[in-house]
């Protein structure tokens, strides 16, 4: 099973001002998605959502094509939608629905049989700790619970290809960990594509990552492969507080973290060279360092 993106691009015209140039939301993206968890990292407005909507077949690319096992997804049509589960960034639902009613509605849309529906909904509600609120209206639930309902609907058809756009927004730390574990378990022999700008969400579970900026994929690889590019570029130094402003305005370094120490000094983590700040020590890089470096 594989999803292939071949030179996919999406351009938008500004309908209110035709004189403005066409906006390239996604520009010439080629990607080969194989089973495992994929992290799609990028700042807000980098084109992640547009790319994901095209991958889900909700939006047509301006150029290029997206294939599932070598066949264009537009040809596969509903057969393709049968194998995907999608949670958009904005989880929209009909306000009149309870959790159970909503999942029954979506399962009808996904073509599940009556026999399948009950078991599948029961199983997901238990797995996502939503069993107690199944008869509650979604609109009355907390942000985290709503998100979990969104995840439940995406998993209803036991999809081969799961696409989650910013799935952890609104979840508390405990819920995030549970969610990561659920995905790791789920991702065996399937493709899970998660877009986020919160790097730790994918750092530990992503088999591979793609980093997106201005509609383009800048880098792809495993977390290790990507992180290795930052070896020798991440440092930590302790500075007196009066020097902070000076280092913040230094164009040679990029501060990625600040920590106030008990003695009043400041511990800086930065991207740059060891000689930039005296007595700086090399640090093990993380995916976040790379992300911030590229950002």
């Amino acid at each position: 099973m594989e999803i292939t993106l071949e030179h996919v691009a999406k351009h938008f015209k500004d309908k209110s001002n035709k004189n403005l140039p066409v906006k390239k939301a996604v520009a010439d993206v080629s990607l080969h998605l194989t089973p495992g968890v994929w992290g799609l990292l990028g700042a807000n407005g980098s084109g992640k959502t547009t790319l994901m909507r095209m991958i889900c077949g909700i939006m047509k690319p301006t150029s290029g094509r997206i294939c599932y096992d070598g066949v264009d997804i537009t040809q596969l049509d509903d057969a393709y939608r049968d194998i995907i589960g999608y949670l958009p960034q904005e989880f929209g639902f009909y306000p009149e629905f309870t959790v159970q009613q909503y999942l029954e509605y979506i399962s009808a849309l996904k073509g599940l049989t009556n026999v399948q529906v009950k078991n599948r909904i029961d199983e997901l509600l238990v797995r996502l700790s939503l069993d107690d609120v199944r008869r509650k209206r979604i609109i009355k639930l907390s942000g985290g619970m709503k998100r979990r309902v969104g995840i439940a609907q995406a998993l209803l058809n036991d999809p081969e290809f799961l696409v989650l756009d910013e799935p952890t927004s609104g979840l508390d730390p405990g819920e995030r960990v549970r969610f990561r574990n659920l995905l790791s378990e789920f991702a065996k022999d399937r493709i899970v594509l998660i877009s986020t700008h919160i790097v730790p969400d994918v750092e530990y579970i992503a088999t591979r990552n793609a980093i997106m900026k201005n509609g383009e994929i800048l880098l792809t690889g495993t977390t290790q492969e990507l992180v290795s590019q930052m070896h020798g570029k991440v440092f930590q130094a302790v500075i007196p507080p009066q020097e902070l402003h000076m280092w913040e305005s230094d164009p040679k370094i990029q501060i990625v973290n600040l920590r106030n120490e008990a003695d009043g000094s400041i511990c800086l983590r930065y991207l740059g060279n060891p000689t930039d700040i005296p007595e700086a020590e090399a640090q093990n890089p993380t995916l976040e360092d790379l992300y911030l470096h590229l950002k």
């Binding site: 909700i58 939608r81 958009p88 849309l109």
Partner: peptide, 8 residues
């Protein structure tokens, strides 16, 4: 978006 990504 969710509805459109389903079979029916």
């Amino acid at each position: 978006d969710i509805l459109r990504s389903t079979r029916h």
